[in-house]
């Protein structure tokens, strides 16, 4: 069984990722000061929790919108279909990073105004902001899958047997014949959510006014990276490149920035390989 896991690229990279995170955790536990360790742990958990919520929201949003488009398109009244398509195209026209940035700003304003206090509300809202700008490509994938099967006898053969259209679309096409494609896309969305979240958090923490800052939002990997300590740690990497004798110090004296950067880059690389391996294994 272990051999099988190693042979499969996606399983192999999942193992490498988890082991890498475990190794970083052990190292930080041994050599990172406790307040910084707590920050890294909180940033890591928050980032990945939000990314997981993004995946869930993206799936629900995409599935719902796909069904809505399908049934509105089949209906006689085309106005709702055209309106929904227009809205989707409107979202599509906004660059993802810009859309999410404004979403984050809006959430920060609400937090500062005291409307949002609990992380149980803030996390889903942040995740929803990201989902709103990544779910459309998911809708495209699902619509393509449905269109592909509608061209085959598969769809008509089931419909003339009286099988309801909802079942053919949801169960036979999307669940039975597209779930591998969907899961593969979800893995990519998970990676994209981490990347977008870190980017936006970093931008917010570094480049915006003091009214809207990382203090108002939960700590994430992006906001941790934007801290002055982390930035100095990252600069130390550049210094070590020209002064190789300093490399050893990085792992003991610059752990905060190094850990955060490692967790982001290593996770993104691992998720990329997991998604690729999964696609190769299932010949997508």
């Amino acid at each position: 069984m272990f051999k099988q896991l190693i042979i499969k690229k996606d399983s192999r990279w999942l193992g490498i990722w988890l082991l890498g995170i475990l190794a970083a955790g052990i190292w930080d536990n041994l050599f990172l000061n406790k307040p910084a360790l707590r920050q890294v742990a909180a940033g890591f958990v928050n980032t990945f929790s939000i990314a997981l919520l993004v995946v869930i929201f993206t799936l629900l949003l995409a599935w719902g919108v796909t069904l809505a488009l399908h049934f509105l398109d089949a209906g006689k009244n085309k106005a709702p279909y055209l309106l929904l398509t227009f809205l989707l195209n409107l979202i599509r026209s906004i660059p993802q990073i810009v859309g999410i940035l404004f979403g984050y700003v809006a959430v920060s304003v609400l937090v500062q105004a005291g409307f949002l206090r609990s992380e149980a509300v803030i996390f889903p809202l942040l995740a929803f902001c990201i989902s709103l700008f990544v779910f459309i490509e998911f809708v495209d994938l699902m619509r393509e899958r449905i269109a592909h099967y509608q061209k085959l006898d598969f769809y008509n053969a089931m419909r003339v047997c009286g099988i309801p259209e909802g079942r053919v679309i949801n169960f036979d096409i999307l669940w039975k014949n597209s779930r591998i494609h969907i899961l593969n896309k979800l893995i990519s969305v998970f990676g994209a959510a981490i990347f977008l979240q870190c980017s936006v958090d970093f931008i917010i923490s570094v480049g915006l006014s003091t009214d809207v800052n990382s203090v108002t939002l939960p700590a994430t990997m992006g906001s941790l990276l934007a801290k002055i300590d982390s930035k100095q740690d990252i600069l130390a990497i550049g210094y070590a490149l020209t002064h190789p004798g300093y490399v050893g110090n990085l792992f003991f004296e610059h752990l905060l920035g190094l850990s955060v950067a490692f967790l982001i880059v290593f996770s993104l690389m691992s998720i990329y390989h997991i998604a690729n391996g999964y696609a190769e294994r299932h010949r997508l």
Partner: peptide, 23 residues
């Protein structure tokens, strides 16, 4: 859809491979 398919009439398509959900 409402009155004929599966109720008054049914049809068997010629290519079973395409007509069935293989998954």
């Amino acid at each position: 859809d409402a009155e004929i398919w599966g109720k008054k009439a049914g049809m068997v398509f010629q290519h079973a491979d395409e007509s069935l959900n293989l998954a």
